[in-house]
Design a binder for these strands. Sequence first.
DNA 1: GTCTATATCTGGATAGAC
DNA 2: GTCTATCCAGATATAGAC
Lengths: 207, 207
Amino acid sequence: MSIPKENTEKREVGRAGILKAAASLFRQYGYGAVSLRAIAEAAGIKAGSIYYHFDSKDAIVTEILDAGIVAVHEEARAAVLALPDDAAPEVIFRAAIRGHLRALLEHGDYTSANVRIFGQVPAAVRDANLPVRKAYEKYLDDLLSGLQASGAIREDVNLSRLRLLLIGALNATLEWFDPKQGGAEALADDYTEIFLNGIFNKTGVTP
Amino acid sequence: MSIPKENTEKREVGRAGILKAAASLFRQYGYGAVSLRAIAEAAGIKAGSIYYHFDSKDAIVTEILDAGIVAVHEEARAAVLALPDDAAPEVIFRAAIRGHLRALLEHGDYTSANVRIFGQVPAAVRDANLPVRKAYEKYLDDLLSGLQASGAIREDVNLSRLRLLLIGALNATLEWFDPKQGGAEALADDYTEIFLNGIFNKTGVTP
DNA sequence: GTCTATATCTGGATAGAC
DNA sequence: GTCTATCCAGATATAGAC
């Protein structure tokens, strides 16, 4: 998730500082509205100095996009792996949702920057981000596939469409989430309840 | 949904042509990437001529954003109103979902432009769009509230959170929807099934 | 109502000193 | 590794002819 041109193992405080500042600004204001001058100012340097670390604005945003997907992928994966071997299917599902939302809403700017600006960057930059995106999609598809094979998810559920529904609903929380009104975990549990059981009130529950 | 400064009742082919062309370009490429020169070219005129009809680029996008919300609001409302008086709760819910997705995925560029670029426009433009947004949100909240009061939606479902989940999941379909792989109606029915009943396989169905 | 021409500004990127 | 200074392209917006 970092593609320096040469001699990578350096201290790289300047480089990391630029990436961090850029991700925060991109997340807040979008790709087109953030200038290299603004990034430089937030990182505490001058605009021209950026070019010692990066070839272009696109090079910066390319790294940020990759880091964002990697972060959410790793957090979701870690949340599932932390479960006991005999965890119930709904617990596994909930853990993945929690990991995704924690990475998006609580940890760092890279993931939220990715969700916000992916649709705004040049096509070439989007294309460069596709491999890590596909890897995360495959992870989720495999997870859902396993849950369906074990009988936890109904057979008539189209899994790739379900994955798109889930990612769409989860990523959209970024637009309105307010940590002061309950954390990401509580939100994840609310959403999981609806995804698993729906909203419909089944009348005539067997007494 | 149109805020001309003076003498509105004119023919307005030029004006409408500019709005239509701009909405289409904004939907495809985002707000920042589309120049007035590109809009003018798509509308068949020169860039300078745009200023006869609009005061600024922001004035154009302001109208487009409002028109987008109005279109989805009206389509959802019409779909529900077209139902017989004794329509079942799940039929009402499905009709609203269908209307929203039809407006977003099949009818015109204004609604999809709104979803795509709302997060990219200047804050003042976003603020100007809030009243029509709030009106649509209120419509959905009232609809869901009625369904919950009648017992169709479980009492423990938080309605404002449900509304955010629904709009988020529905609007996200714009990013991947392909009309060649099934229309908006079929997609709406798939999503509705999950929203209503969830994905979880209830074992021990009463035989 | 649309044109041409242009003023003005901003942003990405480069060159070379330190 | 960061600075200053600057080039150049492209954008919004304006002025006035037609």
